[in-house]
Simulated assay, not measured.
Amino acid sequence: MKRLAIDLQPGEYAVARLDPGGQVPVLDAVDGLVSITRTATETSVICPAGRVPEGARVEAGWRLLTVRGPLAFTLTGIIAALASELASAGVALFSVSTFDTDHVLVKEGELERAVQALRAAGHEVSTANA
């Protein structure tokens, strides 16, 4: 795996679940990542902790690591490598990909261990703006 540049994003994130069939929330004017995924069985929302939709079941306390992109669609193994490196350090993750890049969320309590593991694997992890 080539060396990746990864940025720790500021603030706490939440992963939330809404019941299926409801209206998909609109989160306007939000700084940071917002991802809404709807299936037949649920609507999942990843967003800054202070912007969780009302009535959602929430798993809070996540921090966001973003691979500096854009990444070509032909690149392979990015999430697999990050997941393997974090798993070896005992760090659970939640991942989401966008058109331009990949994002990994780790629990706040595991952040330091995650950053150390990624750096030990040869990746550049910037925490300057977080």
Score class of each variant (00 low, 15 high):
Gln116Pro: 10
Arg51Leu: 04
Asp28Phe: 08
Gly61His: 06
Ala81His: 15
Leu111Asp: 03
Ile36Asn: 02
Glu59Asn: 12
His103Pro: 06
Pro53Leu: 04
Gln116Ile: 15
Ser88Gln: 15
Val106Arg: 08
Pro70Ile: 03
Leu33His: 12
Ser95Pro: 10
Pro25Tyr: 14
Gly32Val: 02
Ala60Arg: 14
Ala89Ile: 04
Val58Leu: 05
Arg38Leu: 08
Leu93His: 10
Glu108Trp: 14
Glu112Asn: 09
Cys47Lys: 04
Gly69Met: 02
Phe99Ser: 11
Glu108Asp: 15
Gln23Arg: 13
Pro25Asn: 09
Thr101His: 03
Ala56Ile: 07
Pro48Tyr: 06
Pro70Ala: 08
His103Lys: 01
Glu54Asp: 13
Ile46Asp: 06
Ala29Asp: 14
Gly32Ser: 00
Val24Ser: 09
Leu71Tyr: 05
Ser95His: 07
Val52Leu: 08
Asp100Phe: 11
Val91Met: 00
Ile79Val: 06
Arg38Cys: 10
Thr43Glu: 02
Arg68Lys: 09
Leu93Phe: 13
Ser84Trp: 15
Val30Thr: 04
Thr39Gln: 01
Glu54Gly: 09
Val106Ile: 03
Trp62Thr: 05
Glu54His: 14
Gly90Phe: 05
Pro25Thr: 12
Thr101Phe: 07
Thr41Arg: 13
Ile36Val: 15
Ala40Leu: 15
